[in-house]
Simulated assay, not measured.
Amino acid sequence: MSKEPHDPTHDEPHDPPHDEHHDPLHERLKAYEGRPAAVGGTGKDPVNEAMIRHWCEAMGDTSPAYRGPDPVAPPTMLQAWTMGGLSGHTDRSGAYDELSALLDAAGYTSVVATDCEQEYLRPLRPGDAITFDAVIESVSPRKSTKLGTGHFVTTRMDIRAGGELAGTHRFRILKYTPAARPEQREKTAPQAPQAADRPRRPRPVVNRDNAGFWDGVAEHRLLVQRCADCATLRFPWLPGCNACGSRRWDTVEASGEGTVYSYVVMHHPAFPAFDPPYAVGLVELAEGVRMISNIVGVPYDKVRIGMPVRLEFLKVDEELELPVFRAGGED
């Protein structure tokens, strides 16, 4: 099972003050539960070594399981084999579009992906022909989050290889009406600004797999995992070695020296806690692993590939400190 939370709402959703048991809209939305979102879908290409290679190069995954005379596809590619590309699929059901239109008409016109779950039942190998069916699994009652108020919609896709169930993919979105921005709230209810109302940077997701990394950050140490069996370094933190599969590991402390391997400049979407444009870099550490963080110390348009950088820790607020990289020789 692979569960990859990605919740930009930051707070656990909660119910707004209304009686959801007598919500006519939700009753209409629940009628879509169990209806198909795609029927008899067919992957545009069979599982193939070229796409496996591209995926592994993009992810930096060098596992021998994905190469050689009898490779398998990385499990996390499960959804990739079902994607329709720019031209889309023609076998999509109208139920999902109807549900989306109903939410749009009710004012829930914004959408954000919140999380996905995958379950793997058998490995996929080059030559496997992919088919799939998708169903609208659930529509939540109206919920309020940091982003706004709306409904969570979950779809489940059953993915088959040669007719045999290979895995399932659950995908959840929030269709919502955006919450009023701070400046809009001030217009309707003028009051002195409070420190608690200032926008905060999103909180990192800390779990049992990466808690040690954040413990190191709290001590101003950048810790990199090292396999206890083959000594391969890995970042970000993972529960097992992607070189030999071992679950035993220890850590080494990075020197903090690195270079910009690649970067992007963020212009939008605007988020209250950030001030675009700003540079986000993929930094190659002296130890050989790469990590993503902000590049500071130079204007965003002066960041260059190959630029030397050095680790420092940025105190974002009273609760949050983050590792960032300052361009060498620039202040």
Rank of each mutant, 00 (worst) to 15 (best):
D70C: 00
D70N: 06
P71W: 01
P71D: 03
P71R: 00
P71V: 01
P71N: 01
A73D: 13
A73E: 08
A73C: 14
P74W: 14
P74K: 15
P75G: 02
P75Y: 12
L78N: 00
Q79R: 02
A80Q: 05
W81V: 03
T82Q: 13
M83G: 14
G84D: 14
G85V: 11
G85L: 12
L86V: 12
S87A: 09
S87K: 11
S87I: 06
S87T: 10
G88T: 04
H89G: 01
H89N: 06
R92F: 01
G94I: 11
G94L: 08
A95R: 07
A95K: 08
A95N: 15
D97K: 11
D97A: 13
D97C: 03
D97S: 11
E98R: 10
E98N: 05
L99I: 04
L99H: 14
L99V: 09
L99S: 05
L99D: 09
A101Q: 12
L102N: 10
D104Q: 07
A105W: 10
A105D: 12
A105T: 11
T109Q: 14
T109L: 08
T109I: 12
T109V: 14
S110M: 12
S110Q: 11
V111A: 13
V111K: 09
V112R: 00
V112H: 00
V112P: 02
T114R: 13
T114L: 15
D115P: 03
D115L: 09
C116N: 12
E117Q: 06
Q118Y: 09
Q118D: 02
Q118L: 01
E119T: 02
E119W: 03
Y120S: 01
Y120I: 01
Y120Q: 04
L121W: 10
L121P: 02
R122W: 06
R122Y: 04
R122K: 15
P123W: 07
L124D: 05
R125K: 10
R125W: 03
P126D: 03
P126Q: 04
G127E: 08
G127A: 06
G127P: 10
G127L: 08
A129C: 07
A129Y: 04
A129K: 12
T131I: 06
T131M: 06
T131W: 02
T131Q: 10
F132R: 03
